[in-house]
Structure formats: structure tokens, C-alpha cells
């Protein structure tokens, strides 16, 4: 059995990949923004002393972690409009869906990061007269963020790959474009190979950066 790779054909269709990457990056960006903002809020609530804050956050996190993201996306796109009368475009729905999903995981990263900081740090901040917000912003989070970088990069890579699920909502992200291309060219091996390479090129720099940061912070303590 021999297979003849036809890379020239792929090169001719390079614009398709460029379009797909643009949408993927946009989805990733918005989902990340939602995930980070909501994740920080949920993470702070989750590590709060007040049960009224802790409980809703815990329920949210558990629901989003315990159900498949594919179901969440479909539900947000098709069921939410019926319940709330809130009609979203498919790109918005995909961004929101992936963002809400990522928020649950990012919240846990924030919580674990905050709780990993020695209690003496908040004692020292409080004893100087700092309030909760000042202590978090100036003392706890700057230290916690360093410990959160590796799991956070991990989550970022996951999130970017999850954007491929946008294809179920007919979002023209990279995978969706690729599948259209396959239907026209019948060259799945070449197309999927390129998709893998492109994702690798987009994600690897962040992994590399994370490792460098970790090493640098280690030397400074």
C-alpha cells in the first residue's frame, strides 16, 4: 500500500486555514476573557469565609465540571433562547459556552492558588492594616499567580483545543473549515495533519513561555 501525499493541493487552499485560524483565535480570546473574569470571581467566592458566596460558586463549578461541554454548548445555543428569549449568534454562543465552561476550571486554579499561600502572608497584610481587597491584590494574588501559571497554561491549551467544538454550532473555526475542505478535496490525511501542526504552532509558544517563567521565578523565590 502506498499513499501519495498531495501537499500542493493544500497549499492552494491555504486561505481556508488562515480564515479558520482567525476564527479560532477570536473564539479563544473571548472564551478566555470570560473564563478568566468569571473564574477569578468564582475562585474568590469559593475560598470565601461566607457560605452565601461559597455555595453558589461551588454549585456552578460542580455543574460545569460534571457535564459534557458538547452538551453545554448545544444547550446554550438552542435551549437558552427558548428559556430566556436570548438569541445569540453561533460565534457568540460558542465563545460564551466555552468561556462559562473554562471558568469552572479556572476558578479551581485560582482557589487552589490562593489557598496554597501561607496564612502568615494574610496575617502580615492584615496586621499592617490592609483590607481584604488590598491584601488580595498586593500580597496574595501576585504570589498565587506564579503558582497558577503551569495549570493555567494547561487550561489555556485545553481551551484553545475546545474551540474545535464550535463546529457543532457551525462556527467556521479551524476544524470546521478543514472539514469543509475535506468534503471538497477528499484529502483528509493532509488536511488533518495541517490542522494538528497549526494547533501545535499556536499552543507551543505558551508552553515554552510558561516553562521559562517557572524557571525564572524559581531562582528568585
Amino acid at each position: 500500500m502506498s499513499y501519495t501525499w498531495q501537499w500542493q493541493l493544500i497549499w492552494d487552499f491555504r486561505q481556508v486555514f488562515v480564515r479558520g485560524v482567525e476564527v479560532t483565535v477570536m473564539l479563544t480570546w473571548w472564551a478566555l476573557l470570560i473564563g478568566l473574569g468569571l473564574g477569578l470571581l468564582l475562585g474568590l467566592m469559593r475560598s470565601s469565609r461566607l457560605a452565601v458566596l461559597r455555595w453558589p460558586a461551588a454549585v456552578y463549578i460542580d455543574i460545569f465540571r460534571a457535564t459534557p461541554i458538547l452538551v453545554q454548548l448545544v444547550w446554550i445555543y438552542y435551549a437558552l433562547p427558548i428559556l430566556l428569549g436570548l438569541q445569540m449568534g453561533n460565534i457568540v454562543a460558542a465563545s460564551v459556552g466555552i468561556g462559562l465552561h473554562a471558568a469552572a476550571y479556572i476558578a479551581e486554579i485560582f482557589r487552589a492558588g490562593i489557598e496554597s499561600i501561607d496564612r502568615g502572608q494574610s496575617d502580615a497584610a492584615k496586621s499592617l492594616g490592609m483590607g481584604y481587597g488590598q491584601a488580595m491584590r498586593r500580597i496574595i494574588l501576585p504570589q498565587a499567580v506564579r503558582r497558577m501559571v503551569p495549570p493555567f497554561i494547561n487550561e489555556f491549551a485545553t481551551l484553545m483545543k475546545l474551540t474545535t467544538l464550535g463546529s457543532v454550532l457551525a462556527v467556521n473555526e479551524l476544524l470546521h473549515e478543514a472539514e469543509n475542505l475535506i468534503n471538497n478535496t477528499y484529502r483528509p490525511l493532509e488536511v488533518y495533519t495541517i490542522v494538528a501542526v497549526v494547533f501545535g504552532l499556536m499552543i507551543y509558544p505558551f508552553i515554552w513561555l510558561s516553562q521559562r517563567l517557572e524557571r525564572r521565578w524559581k531562582t528568585r523565590g
Partner: peptide
Amino acid sequence: IRRIRARLGMVFQSFNLFPH
């Protein structure tokens, strides 16, 4: 509470300097 804490300096067994 913060106003009172600001007027009372505290030194801890484990120093608790801000490492960053």
C-alpha cells in the same frame, strides 16, 4: 478594625515577609 491594626505593629515567629 483596620485602623486599630495599623497602629499595632506585629512581628511573627515565621517572619512572614512578602517574598515577591
